[in-house]
């Protein structure tokens, strides 16, 4: 595979309008993510990690600084960047196959190619026998696997993961962490994971950036030099974990923390709750 998928974040700052004083969420973030790398962003809630990911995805704008993918400035969303949310965000009226194919709607492929791509990616996430199943008939973990297939089906250069496993139960989470590592290896794709689960980050990442909250800024970048597959109970693993968790302890979030920064990607929100006409 060609080595594309370089992410450059330089001098990125972002504020949200908030009452009288604007809320400063990101402050002068510099990151360089190498092609094919598994890179994680960890930090306490309120450190703006989801905000940063949404900027890289092109879902939000209005920031200072520069975000580039392979030298090209991010402007709006692109099929070159796959994004997974905490909720699988599948459409309940489409079956598994149709949900994955939805990502190909605007792709230049032929019908036949699209069919093959969908089948191939369902196989990648181990759901090829569930193609005709509807999301509400699947478990949360399976739904998230469909979302992985949808995120990868366009063969993007980078895969962006916004706490994709946070809403799952512990067993499913561990299983999908292993799955993610396998898929990342198979696809050889730059992967950027936002998580508050330090263990998850260490298990999967080549490098981890620890963000400090209010305003979100880089505290340090940790190189994870452990052989794969990694063992969660390995002594070296645990010492790395302890080391990173110490950073967290120093930046204990205030009770008032979970503000605009992280809640922008929160799940159920209604588009416009004005039912003036609907009696």
């Amino acid at each position: 595979m060609s080595k594309l998928g370089n992410i450059t974040v330089s001098g990125v700052s972002k504020s949200f309008p908030h009452k009288k004083k604007p809320l400063h969420v990101l402050d002068n973030i510099d990151l360089e993510i190498r092609p094919g790398e598994f890179f994680s962003i960890v930090g306490a809630s309120g450190c703006g990690k989801s905000t940063l990911l949404r900027l890289i995805a092109g879902l939000d704008g209005g920031y200072e600084g520069d975000i580039r993918i392979d030298g090209q400035r991010v402007q709006g969303t692109s099929l070159d960047r796959g994004l997974l949310f905490q909720d699988a965000r599948l459409l309940p009226w489409l079956n598994v196959e149709e949900n994955v194919a939805l990502a190909l709607t605007s792709s230049p492929y032929s019908k036949q190619q699209k069919r093959e791509l969908v089948a191939e990616h369902l196989k990648l996430v181990g759901l090829d026998s569930f193609a005709k199943t509807y999301p509400h008939q699947l478990s949360g973990g399976m739904q998230q696997r469909v979302a992985v297939a949808r995120g990868l089906v366009n063969r993007p250069r980078v895969l962006l993961l916004d706490e994709p496993l946070a809403a799952l139960d512990a067993l499913t989470r561990q299983y999908l962490q292993v799955e993610l590592e396998r898929i990342w290896k198979e696809e050889d794709i730059t992967t950027l994971l936002v998580t508050h689960d330090v263990e998850e980050a260490i298990l999967l990442s080549d490098r981890i950036v620890v963000l400090e909250p209010r305003p979100g800024r880089v505290r340090r970048i940790v190189e994870i030099d452990l052989p794969r597959p990694r063992n969660r109970s390995d002594a070296k693993f645990l010492s790395v974990k302890e080391d990173i968790l110490r950073d967290f302890a120093n930046s204990e979030p205030e009770p008032d923390s979970a503000s605009a920064a992280d809640s922008t990607s929160d799940s159920v929100e209604i588009l416009a709750p004005s039912f003036a006409l609907a009696s």
Binding site: A57, L59, T77, S78, L79, L83, F85, D87, R89, L91, L102, A103, T105, S106, S267, V268, E269, I270, L271, A272, P273, S274, F275, L277, A278, S279
Partner: peptide, 27 residues
């Protein structure tokens, strides 16, 4: 009334998906 209310009940999440997957307004 029902069409209006139905269109306004669309989750913001789902509308955002359209942007992410670069669907045309018609799609």
């Amino acid at each position: 009334t029902s069409t209006y209310a139905g269109l306004h009940s669309v989750q913001r999440n789902h509308a955002e998906l359209a942007r992410l997957l670069r669907l045309s307004p018609w799609q």
